[in-house]
């Protein structure tokens, strides 16, 4: 089964009297355990595509199958459930809950998923260990560095064992060295079998992926395999 199967989706916003056609027919297939980068200048429809893939938004037309399930016409609450179980978000600005400690931030998706306290503890601790923050488990986000915060966000994204990890400019707020560390985490996740979609405008970051899709004016401009081998595989 394909991880993701998008067929000719469009998205049109109505702003005042103007119509903004953010996506004009995008078709995209993704196999399990693929690692792709979505690139494009601002206004290319990159964010809109990411919102649709992340089930934060529904397309105006077209079909979207996530692991064989049609999610293109779901209600808000149904989408929330899909996001909870199948999507892991990593944002540029980390988006952690400020007053909650690392553990609580990571277990949050499991709470909304309805898991018991014992199960949550097991899964959250495992996810925190994967990103190497076991010794910071009771720290609040403001007691962590930028890189550490992004690791927490990654732990939160993968704690539910999602179908897709969707990372929107994950290194945008980090210095180059820390950014590389974070990319290494993604590489490891991919090696462990996760499907990863990276949204970025930096070519070097996109190089970590195995396939790059370039958007322009709401359409796919190019879709090609990256020549460079994955650093961990080389």
């Amino acid at each position: 089964m394909k991880a993701l199967d998008i067929r000719n989706i469009t998205k049109t916003y109505h702003m005042a009297s103007e119509e903004v056609r953010a996506l004009r027919g995008v078709t995209l297939e993704l196999e399990q355990n693929e690692y792709i980068a979505i690139m494009g200048p601002s206004g290319s429809g990159k964010s809109t595509l990411m919102n649709v893939i992340g089930c934060l938004d529904t397309p105006s037309s077209g079909e979207y199958f996530l692991e064989g399930v049609d999610v293109s016409k779901m209600s808000d609450d149904q989408l929330a459930e899909i996001r909870n179980r199948k999507i892991g978000f990593v944002f540029q600005t980390f988006n952690l809950i400020p007053r909650s400690d690392v553990f609580h931030n990571v277990e949050l998706p499991l709470i909304y998923g309805g898991l018991s306290g014992a199960d949550r503890r097991k899964l959250a601790e495992a996810a925190i260990e994967k990103v190497g923050l076991s010794d910071r488990i009771t720290h609040k986000p403001n007691e962590l560095s930028g890189g550490q915060r992004q690791r927490v966000a990654i732990a939160r994204a993968l704690v539910n064992n999602p179908s897709i990890i969707l990372a929107d400019e994950p290194t945008g707020n980090l210095d180059t060295a820390t950014g590389e560390e974070i990319m290494q985490v993604f590489n490891d996740l991919h090696a462990a079998g996760n499907t990863i979609i990276l949204v970025t405008h930096e070519t070097e970051i996109a190089q970590h992926a195995h396939r790059t899709i370039r958007l322009r004016d709401g359409m796919i401009e190019s879709d090609e395999k990256n020549g460079v081998l994955h650093p961990t595989l080389s």
């Binding site: 808000d76 909870n84 988006n95 809950i97």
Partner: peptide
């Protein structure tokens, strides 16, 4: 923003 985060990771309306 916090509401946005919670919704993104799967909080329903209720």
């Amino acid at each position: 923003r916090e509401i946005g985060i919670r919704k993104a990771i799967g909080a329903k309306k209720r």
